[in-house]
């Protein structure tokens, strides 16, 4: 009767409140989300509220929100889609694409981004 590996207690589907994502929602990992300022509705789950609290002071990407909330990225996408369709969030196009001078320009490679990150941290 030795304890096994720590087992999940709260499943992710609790975050969405049992409701699926709207059909047309297409979010990327780097889609930036910003609050519109509307407060949460009664049907919003604690996860929705936490997401709104996170982005209330400024925009965050889906990936960052997933990191903060410790939720799978897909779940955050679903939450974000629900909140966008409810009018609580504004989604912006992913930043690297916005920065790209041309439509078909490639993104910076991973090594370069890591160097930049280390540079930033060294500031």
């Amino acid at each position: 009767m030795s304890p096994g590996p720590a087992r999940r207690l709260v499943p992710s589907y609790l975050a969405t409140g049992g409701v699926g994502a709207p059909e047309h929602s297409r979010f990327e990992e780097l889609t930036a989300l910003q609050a519109t300022g509307r407060s949460a509705l009664p049907h919003h789950t604690p996860a929705h509220q936490r997401l709104l609290n996170l982005v209330s002071d400024g925009g965050l990407t889906v990936m960052e929100i997933a990191g903060y909330l410790r939720l799978p990225v897909g779940v955050v996408k679903m939450l974000a889609a629900q909140l966008v369709s409810d009018g609580h969030l504004r989604a912006a196009a992913p930043l690297p694409d916005a920065l790209a001078p041309a439509i078909n320009a490639g993104r910076p490679d991973k090594a370069l981004l890591e160097e930049v990150m280390h540079g930033l941290l060294a500031l």
Partner: peptide
Amino acid sequence: SFRLQTLVDDLQRDCRDPEVLQEYFRIDQ
């Protein structure tokens, strides 16, 4: 059932498609 839970949880973490994720949610529940 615990093994299935672990498996579905892993699938959910890797899933990027909301519709598929919704199906995983049903299985998980």
